[in-house]
């Protein structure tokens, strides 16, 4: 390599400021004498200036959104995202997590089942509707109507307060089959006992219980509570 070729080869380094001070001095001395090298340096400097002035290429406006769609379509983003979430929030094995999840669901089902039972019991223990009669005769007719419907008559198990306006009043517990509710209402109409009962049987399962209270003679029939 001649001295001239060596200087030509380091023109780029000279423009980049990569030359040592000594090489720089030598090149500048050579440039002062060599038209060819000076011309090449000028051309190179001008070309690089134009290249450096080029505006930065910008990606198309839709680039990021398209890429995101592509990544999702390939399952790359969503799958990794889920894995990351598992790793971040649950430092347990997936089997443990599933066991805890299943146990929670089981416990929830048991609670719901127990609540349902409680609600049913609550419905069953609602105070039974009451009927009032004013004479033994009416009571006998009522009892017959119950028997006709396949029901039973028994003592309710407690006495009313002696201080109540009913005096020596007593209660009977009437048990009526649920399916016979409508027949029982028709029987009450026939007996001219105007009980204000719902046309539909009370909620719950099993037989329906009614409390019958005897009114002292001469007292007007009280409406049921």
């Amino acid at each position: 390599m001649t001295e001239h070729e060596r200087f030509q080869a380091i023109l780029s380094d000279y423009l980049d400021g990569e030359l040592s001070e000594q090489d720089c001095d030598q090149l500048e001395a050579h440039l002062a004498e060599c038209d060819a090298c000076s011309h090449q340096l000028a051309l190179l400097r001008r070309a690089l200036q134009v290249v450096h002035d080029l505006p930065q290429v910008r990606a198309p406006a839709h680039f990021a959104s398209r890429l995101r769609r592509r990544a999702r379509r390939s399952g790359l983003l969503s799958r990794r995202r889920r894995k990351a979430l598992w790793r971040m929030s649950m430092p347990f094995s997936s089997t443990m997590v599933m066991s805890v999840l299943l146990a929670s669901v089981g416990a929830l089902l048991i609670v719901v089942f127990m609540l349902q039972k409680q609600i049913e019991l609550l419905i069953e223990h609602q105070p039974p509707p009451r009927l009032q009669v004013s004479s033994i005769q009416e009571m006998e007719e009522l009892a017959r109507a119950i028997w006709d419907c396949g029901g039973r008559v028994g003592l309710a198990g407690h006495s009313l307060d002696a201080a109540s306006p009913l005096g020596d009043a007593w209660e009977l517990d009437l048990e009526i089959p649920r399916t016979a509710w409508r027949d029982f209402q028709l029987a009450l109409e026939r007996l001219d006992l105007h009980a204000q009962l719902d046309p539909e049987p009370p909620t719950g399962t099993g037989a329906i219980h009614l409390l019958v209270q005897r009114m002292p003679p001469g007292e007007p029939a009280r409406q049921p509570d």
Binding site: A9, L11, S12, D13, E18, Q40, L44, L48
Partner: peptide
Amino acid sequence: KSRLHRARMDLA
């Protein structure tokens, strides 16, 4: 460096 110089000269 040497290849870049040749590339620049080619471009120039």
